[in-house]
Design a protein around this nucleic acid. Sequence first.
DNA 1: GACTATACGGGGCGACCGCCCCGGTTGTCT
DNA 2: AGACAACCGGGGCGGTCGCCCCGTATAGTC
Lengths: 195, 195
Amino acid sequence: MRTERPLRADARRNRERILLAARHAFAAEGIGVPLDEIARRAGVGPGTVHRHFPTKEALFEAVVVEHLEQLTRDAREALEADEAGSAFFAFLIRMTSEAHAKQDLADAIAGAGANLGSATLRVAADLREIFAALLERAQRANVVRTDVDAADVQAIVLAALTAQRQRADTTRPDRLAALVFDCLRPNDPVARSQR
Amino acid sequence: MRTERPLRADARRNRERILLAARHAFAAEGIGVPLDEIARRAGVGPGTVHRHFPTKEALFEAVVVEHLEQLTRDAREALEADEAGSAFFAFLIRMTSEAHAKQDLADAIAGAGANLGSATLRVAADLREIFAALLERAQRANVVRTDVDAADVQAIVLAALTAQRQRADTTRPDRLAALVFDCLRPNDPVARSQR
DNA sequence: GACTATACGGGGCGACCGCCCCGGTTGTCT
DNA sequence: AGACAACCGGGGCGGTCGCCCCGTATAGTC
């Protein structure tokens, strides 16, 4: 059973063009962008888009998976950093500023988009795993309160992202996000005074 | 110039029915609900909805204004409470849990809905004014950090709402919201230990 | 350079939704 | 009770968008 056949050159080129246009379009305006608009920006016909990605969700997923994989790589790097606390919080900031410029990620995290397929679920599971390790390490180092779990933090990341988008601050873009993340720090004065 | 003519009895009854149905529909699913669905739930024809509210935004606004007015009343009450800090934070929690059950408010705050009319803007300005007073009082009492303004707090309310919706906790529905609001408290250990 | 499979493009279908109009009905006032 | 005006209901129009089909062009192969 030949599951894979090499794509023709022009087909591969068009596929890349579509993905590039979709990246920008979804990043700028979220999942609401019409497919025809993406096709127009990519310089191909609407039919071509549909052939490469049978449904709109499929295209959206392809873009989101790319971003999630990038985040997973970032999280792995953060896990190798020395200082547990700063690595954790820096990664949180990175997630929000990343998703800030990429509306699609926010849509995906919020689940506003659609029912995502198995590919996305697998990548998301990977990210969650690394992320949980990062969190646990920060909690052991007593820089993050211990009464929150990974899902809580994920919700708070989405929250910070919302705040940031609501009140775009050009001079200090991460100000509100950093403020919100402060609520994750432990309560005891000793730990707080260390930051 | 007779600007006002008393509405006929059945017209007034239908108007109330539509508003009631719209309240529930918008609260449950946000602004995305089709007008025909609201008409169906209200037990009237789609044309009737359109006659009472010339556009969809008009109906949405009518519902949102009701909620904003309620919130404004709550804020005024909170301003008369004795303890500045608990009044402020209790009002924040109230806002989020209110908006939690009312998707429409979240849409309105986030501006996701549409360009709102002058009526909404006026009510929103009222609420902002009272809210700013509430915040300033809490800041003077040293229970809220002084490097945030009302717009920051509004963004954070929206953020807390997002977190709460993301991770619905039936046993402690306000847990995440309260957690997020903690980031508004001052940093110095003395003030923090008082809570 | 010719032949075949593969891919392209754009026109079009169906669904959805907001908005509007018209024939019939019902409330209201004398 | 009768007459008039206000109101109701539902069908329909126009626009949008996702999805698909088919005639044509083109890349890859001998």
